[in-house]
Design a protein around this nucleic acid. Structure first.
Lengths: 250, 250
DNA sequence: CGTTCTTTTGACGATCATCAAGTCCCGTGG
DNA sequence: CCACGGGACTTGATGATCGTCAAAAGAACG
């Protein structure tokens, strides 16, 4: 699989204007001793059948209601997965980062339940639908890895529902920031400072809050000295205190 | 697999006090022409390695934080899957009915994230953890079926987050009732009248509402002539109008 | 038949959504 | 290079939904 380890042909030119924390996310190569995580999953799922799909910021990678044509593994970039309710309200189920698998929910029904928007230039591997059944039947490692990806996704969903079901606005935002920081850190970036790829409205939609409430909470975190947000730049000053918000009601 | 089709040895005596809608859920045998759904999944996953696990109402089948020892497929009964937040708040991620698979989220980490309480006498098949990897590697049908179960679960999670993130109290309760009715219907029961297995507090915890709000909404549905609830008995009078609640804001 | 849990209903209050206005930021075009 | 325009963000005022507290009726269980 040496070609899979080839230098990042699809990565954009680095360092736009020397941003404070240039966490343009490109998936690092897997390390042998790594525990099985999102990174490794992506590399293991990569098979000769894999195609590469790219799109630009603002583009729609997948549309809810369309036929399932394959799983996508994010190689570089960030996107949002949007679900639409019967009354037209939109909810962002999750933001997906490099190494994560998209389209899992469509495998059973054959139809996508989410619309996926690229929040920045996006590069994915696609595993064609018509290959998946055969791979599952004959490639045990593929099956194990796919099941593992599913299990990680299920755990994320549980935490997401816990957040939406029980937390206050402050807890939700703190939880969101800590989660992002952790995921960036796992990808090899700073866990303290990073660039948000989404708008306040996106964050609100994900957390079940209004744009204004997100903005207010971020302001309050600044006055409390826990996290500084300036536009899309975020810097976490006191991770311990942020985690403490999750422990106490407020 | 004829022994798997044996008459329901573990089903309790039917018809407790001639309840109006005795939907004590026992999984029906699979039909050959059935599309792949929860029922079929359970039967396909059943392998010689399967053990049977039973517990009584109120018992805890799985405890969050304990080691993953195997997947459970519900054969008969109903249970609730509880997630606990860092601050101690509890949220019911889902209620599981016969044919559904429990413990999927623990497959990756090896540790359960949910505590599973039986809401009535429960009978499950357990697929031991130490067999799963081997089955995935060598039994293509098992892998396909497990992936299918995961995908269904992912879809359910998406809808759950949509509900928690965007819906009003009325929409949540209507959505919950319609979902239950649909799932019972798929199991071969009436889609109009059924017995709830959980308390108002459980419903509230699942929907992100307080006990009192659930009670109030049910009362309102009664005065509106949409659904009659008397204790644990529910009768849906106007499914169309209930569905319409989901379309309009209220 | 009493004890305990569940459910219902009411009154009140807090959190958060909505509406509104103003500022900032960034891309675009002159 | 600067001005312009539009979207993103912030902050304030107001109000509605829903949570909390409370009390009482009802159901389940021993």
């Amino acid at each position: 699989m040496s070609e899979l380890l080839a230098p990042d042909a699809c990565a954009p030119a680095p360092g736009g204007r020397g941003a404070p924390a240039s966490n343009r996310q490109v998936m690092p190569a897997p390390s042998l001793q790594a525990t099985r995580d999102a990174r490794e999953i992506a590399w293991r799922l990569a098979a000769p059948e894999t195609r590469t799909v790219q799109c630009r910021r603002g583009d729609i990678l997948l549309r809810s209601g369309t036929r399932f044509e394959g799983l996508h593994v994010i190689r570089a970039g960030c996107c949002k997965l949007v679900v639409t309710s019967p009354d037209g309200a939109e909810h962002i189920a999750s933001f997906a980062l490099p190494g994560e698998v998209i389209g899992l929910e469509a495998l059973a029904s054959g139809v996508h339940d989410t619309t996926v928007h690229a929040l920045e230039p996006l590069s994915c591997w696609q595993i064609p639908a018509e290959r998946i059944d055969a791979l599952l039947r004959h490639d045990g490692v593929f099956a194990q890895t796919l099941v593992h990806a599913f299990s990680l996704d299920a755990g994320r969903s549980l935490r997401g529902m816990l957040m939406l079901g029980t937390m206050t606005a402050h807890q939700r935002v703190a939880s969101f920031l800590l989660d992002l920081a952790d995921r960036y850190h796992r990808l090899g970036f700073s866990g303290h400072a990073f660039e948000l790829r989404m708008t306040r409205a996106d964050i609100g939609s994900h957390l079940g809050l209004s744009t204004e409430t997100v903005s207010r909470v971020l302001s309050r975190l600044r006055t409390e000295g826990l996290a500084i947000s300036s536009g899309r730049s975020i810097r976490l000053l006191d991770r311990t205190a942020l985690a403490r918000i999750l422990l106490h009601g407020d």
